[in-house]
């Protein structure tokens, strides 16, 4: 298709629900089904020990996973200090620390190549 705008529209900006990478998500949900009940209230991020010091947003990271975009997980997940403060505030009662642990396990288990969805 000719491109009359003179630039390519990057397909990677779009979350493509037809190519949903849900391998890690399914693994997490199998062991922590409450993960799907997150309402993105941000309570966890606000209280997060790591997030108050460095650029780390546990809510956004988790949301990325639920949106089938696990590419950034490997770089983000080790920022969590596993302190468990987020669990104390979560209005949905999600065991967020356990979610983090499961993601770590899944990353080893499935070893996804970064950005494989978009290439």
């Amino acid at each position: 298709m000719s491109n009359k705008f003179g630039f390519d529209i990057s397909p990677s900006r779009t979350i493509d629900f037809d190519k949903f990478d849900n391998q890690i998500l399914q693994y997490v949900l199998q062991h922590e089904s409450s993960f799907m009940t997150c309402m993105s209230c941000g309570g966890c991020t606000a209280t997060c020990s790591a997030g108050n010091l460095i650029d780390f947003n546990i809510r956004k990271m988790s949301l990325g996973l639920r949106r089938g975009k696990p590419e950034s997980l490997a770089a983000e997940i080790d920022k969590c200090m596993l302190c468990g403060k987020c669990i104390l505030v979560c209005p949905r009662g999600i065991n967020i620390r356990n979610v983090v642990m499961l993601i770590k396990k899944a990353l080893v288990k499935f070893n996804p190549k970064n950005d494989e969805r978009n290439n």
């Binding site: 993105s40 209230c41 941000g42 966890c44 991020t45 606000a46 108050n52 947003n57 809510r59």
Partner: peptide, 9 residues
């Protein structure tokens, strides 16, 4: 709190 729309605490 987190301003969840901008993603910043």
């Amino acid at each position: 709190a987190e301003d969840t729309l901008s993603g910043y605490p």
